[in-house]
Design a protein around this nucleic acid. Sequence first.
DNA 1: TACCAATAGTTAGTGTGACAAATATATAAA
DNA 2: TTTATATATTTGTCACACTAACTATTGGTA
Lengths: 148, 148
Amino acid sequence: MTQELFARYSFLLDRTARKVKQYAQQQFKTGEFDVTVDQWLVLKNLSENELLSQTELANLVFKDNPTLTRIIDLLCKKNYVERVPHPQDRRSFQLHLTESGISKVSELRPKILEIREKAWENLTGKDFEEFKRILDTIYQNLDGQVSE
Amino acid sequence: MTQELFARYSFLLDRTARKVKQYAQQQFKTGEFDVTVDQWLVLKNLSENELLSQTELANLVFKDNPTLTRIIDLLCKKNYVERVPHPQDRRSFQLHLTESGISKVSELRPKILEIREKAWENLTGKDFEEFKRILDTIYQNLDGQVSE
DNA sequence: TACCAATAGTTAGTGTGACAAATATATAAA
DNA sequence: TTTATATATTTGTCACACTAACTATTGGTA
């Protein structure tokens, strides 16, 4: 039945997403990158957008606030990120990379691009377009359905 | 640069997989299904293959042993699954659904197919084939690279 | 028989994800 | 100014993923 078949997309998606994260994390560990995959995502976005608040950054990386708070906690402990009190709004912080954070990003960026390429062997630019279109459609279909 | 572009697949994949799980979990909660999305996956596979060992089931659903142990623990607590000592091998168990587990599966199956359909709006059977092909290729590219 | 490697499953530690509730501060309305 | 509401972040709880280490058992082999 078609319905049964389509229902398998969730399984394939979950399985592949986990494999991708697992592979990257394994490479991160081998290379002693000193950050996790999610911590890298946060660092990378901070390096491209300085002085974000936590909420802004959370929206950018599609993580919820509690999750981001905890990731930032870890990055602060590792001394890659600092929370600077917002000059006008005492509720919020401006996030910025430390010296150490900046050099970590430039050290890791090329290595991570290399790791990411592995997944895309045997696939074309056109495949990527299809992939992106389908994933975005699924996302849109389900977004706005959850508490919005 | 193409490399930068391709590297975004991991982000898109992770984001969409999380949205799919979140949407389903939200519907599960609203419908008071009394199980999580992952618990459902395990129940469903048990209903299609009785008397599996935990390791066999883990391979089937692509979860690792510790994760499966905890999911089975929870399903036993909820009285949907029982661990029966394996008659020949005292190290392992045969898993089987209780009466309650069987009726839970048949109660939830149609509802979940309906929930799963939502994601596939505006997409075709051909899209599904492409989707499956690309995800499987990515999986294969990275599999066997991690401790195997 | 005694040893040893492999296997089944569990436990513990850390990180992440979702959700709800709490705290502090800001802003708008009465 | 007081009150009400909204926003930024944190804390707590539960579930899941991955790793490493551990127990018990099995099966092969010297």
